[in-house]
Amino acid sequence: MIEHSHYLSNTAKNLKPSGIRKFFDLAAGMEGVISLGVGEPDFVTSWNVREACIQSLEQGYTSYTGNAGLIELREEISYYLQKITNKYYNPKSQLLVTVGASQALDIALRAIINPGDEVLIIDPSFVSYAALVDLAGGVPVMVRTKGEEEFKLQPEALEAAITDKTKAIIICSPSNPTGTVLRKEELERLAVIIEKHDLLVISDEIYSELTYDEEYTSFASIEGMTDRTILISGFSKAFAMTGWRLGYVAANEEFLQAMLKIHQYSMLCAPTMAQYAAIEALKNGFDDVAHMKKSYRQRRNLVVSALNDMGLTCHTPGGAFYVFPSIRKTNLTSEQFAEQLLLEEKVAVVPGSVFGESGEGYIRCSYASSLEQLQEALKKMQRFVDKF
Rank of each mutant, 00 (worst) to 15 (best):
E72T: 07
S56H: 08
A68C: 09
T45S: 15
I77A: 01
Y80K: 10
W47D: 14
K83H: 07
R74I: 05
T45G: 13
Y89H: 10
Q59A: 10
I77W: 00
N86I: 00
I54T: 13
W47T: 08
T85D: 05
K87Q: 08
Y79Q: 09
W47P: 05
N48E: 15
Q82N: 13
T45H: 11
R74D: 06
N48M: 11
Q82C: 04
K83W: 04
I54G: 06
E58N: 03
Y64A: 07
K87C: 04
L70N: 00
I71L: 11
Y79A: 10
E76T: 06
T45I: 12
L73F: 04
S46P: 15
Y64S: 07
N48S: 15
S63L: 02
Q59D: 11
A52E: 00
Y80E: 14
S46F: 12
A68L: 06
A52Q: 01
Q59G: 01
L57A: 14
W47K: 12
G60Y: 06
S46Q: 15
S63E: 08
W47I: 12
T85I: 06
E76L: 08
Y88R: 12
G66C: 00
S63V: 02
E58W: 00
V49F: 08
S46M: 15
S63F: 03
N48A: 13
Y64M: 10
C53E: 14
I84K: 07
I84D: 04
G69T: 03
L70W: 03
A52S: 01
Q59H: 13
G69F: 04
Y88S: 12
W47R: 14
E76F: 03
Y61C: 04
K83M: 08
V49I: 15
V49D: 09
Q82M: 07
Y80F: 15
L73Q: 04
E51K: 14
G69I: 02
N67Y: 02
G66M: 00
T62V: 13
Y88T: 11
Y88Q: 06
N90K: 12
T45R: 13
N90F: 07
N48V: 13
A68S: 13
N90S: 14
I77Q: 00
E75I: 09
G69S: 03
A68P: 02
L70C: 03
K87G: 00
W47A: 10
I54V: 14
K83Y: 05
R50E: 04
R74H: 07
N67M: 01
N48R: 12
N90G: 09
I77M: 01
Q55S: 07
